[in-house]
Amino acid sequence: MAKDPSRMKAPRKKRFAQTNGEHYHHLDALNFKKSLSQWDRPKKYGEICRITGSGAFGVILLLQKTQNCNPPIDRYYALKVFRRRPGQPLAEYQKRVRSEFSIASSLQHRNIIQAFELLPVGTDNLCESMEYCSGGDLYSLLVVSGPLETAEADCFFKQLLRGICYMHEMGVAHRDLKPENLLLSRRGSLKISDFGNAECFRFSWEIQVHMSRQRCGTGPYISPEQYHKEEFDPRSVDIWSAGIVYVAMRTGRNPWKTANEADECYRDYLEDRQAGRGYFLIEDIGHDRSREVLYSTLDLNPLRRPTAAAILRTQWVKQIACCEAASSGLHEQLPGPGTSQSTEELSGV
């Protein structure tokens, strides 16, 4: 099928930003910071420096705490203040927040953001102290820089797969993988964040996987089986999202808005794959080995999608040379509120 020339020639950065919608950096930070100054917030993590982001369910703050020694040492933390929806019962709000924190704090991996503590803020709100990544998120990098070079995108993709592999081994599916939820350290380490939609598909004492029926996530990254009424394996959802993230990194755009037949771009992909043809976006960015992996992650049949562990064993991914931070697993700061980090180390903040 012939491709729409206007769609192919549109500015890539604009196209990506339009597909993902308005980004959180457009919020009124000054008014929110003023209201926070009146809250009885936890002092152990220092003072608010600025608002670094906001999502549907929370606002992220950067906190700085100076340790009085010679010379002084600055420590940086991220604090996620969970929003309570209008009219939402307090018990429901607290259950949702505690569930997210329970999952996030149980995961200890170099490619997953580290959650330290759940704390009360004011009378009814809760907040989560987390590891701070001064490199921002992958979405912002794509909007500012456009498509990434092959080596950089490959490195991020391999790190993402490592994080997914660990999560799935722990019985957790993220269910909302997208560039906004992938944070970057100053040294180039990628970390999965925001477990608000995550679910436990298998507990440690279980063997059988609990299937899911609930659709969740963000438009372009939602797998097609979620639009049907049948149950599905939540692990295959994360694999699909990882494939879309890689396409976004290499092309600076999302291939479609929604993976259902109402979307013209997705229909193009559907027709190409059913006819045994390659899809132009994937054909343009890959070689034989990488294209084979990408098509497998975006297989229309979720039962045929490989596991993250299987993808990591493919010849292409095994040969990806990661940056030093990804190879060594360096943290932007040592875990826990009792650790320190010098201002010089965070000169990129």
Rank of each mutant, 00 (worst) to 15 (best):
P42T: 11
K43Q: 13
Y45V: 14
G46M: 00
E47S: 14
I48L: 09
I48G: 06
I48D: 07
C49I: 15
I51M: 13
T52R: 11
G53N: 07
S54W: 07
A56G: 09
G58E: 07
L61R: 04
L61C: 10
L62R: 10
L63R: 10
K65L: 10
K65E: 11
T66S: 10
Q67M: 14
C69N: 13
C69T: 15
P71D: 03
P71K: 02
P71N: 00
P71M: 03
R75Q: 15
R75I: 08
Y76P: 01
Y76F: 13
Y76A: 01
Y76K: 06
Y76I: 00
Y77N: 13
Y77G: 01
A78Y: 05
A78I: 05
L79W: 03
F82H: 13
F82Q: 13
R83G: 09
R83A: 13
R84T: 02
P86L: 07
G87R: 05
G87W: 01
E92T: 15
Y93E: 07
Y93P: 07
V97N: 04
V97W: 06
R98N: 14
S99W: 11
E100L: 01
F101Q: 01
I103R: 06
A104C: 04
A104G: 08
A104H: 15
S105T: 07
S106Y: 04
S106P: 01
L107V: 08
L107Y: 07
H109V: 08
R110T: 14
N111A: 06
N111S: 01
I112C: 02
I113A: 11
F116C: 06
F116T: 04
F116Y: 15
E117C: 09
L118I: 10
L118A: 05
L119F: 00
P120M: 09
P120I: 09
G122V: 05
G122Y: 00
D124H: 09
D124L: 11
N125S: 12
N125P: 02
L126E: 06
L126R: 02
L126T: 03
E128Y: 07
S129M: 04
M130G: 06
M130D: 05
Y132P: 00
C133T: 09
C133K: 03
C133G: 08
S134H: 04
S134T: 02
S134L: 08
S134D: 13
G135I: 01
G135L: 02
G136K: 02
G136L: 00
D137M: 00
Y139Q: 14
S140Y: 10
S140M: 05
S140G: 14
L141C: 11
L142C: 04
S145F: 09
S145H: 11
G146P: 03
P147K: 03
L148E: 04
L148G: 03
E149H: 10
E149Y: 08
E149P: 09
T150N: 12
T150H: 12
A151L: 10
E152Y: 13
D154W: 09
D154E: 12
D154G: 12
C155F: 07
F157H: 09
K158S: 06
K158E: 00
K158G: 05
Q159M: 15
R162K: 13
G163S: 05
I164G: 01
M167G: 06
M167N: 04
H168K: 08
E169M: 14
M170P: 01
M170A: 14
A173K: 04
A173I: 09
A173S: 12
R175S: 06
R175Y: 07
D176Y: 05
D176P: 04
D176Q: 06
D176M: 05
L177H: 01
K178T: 00
K178I: 07
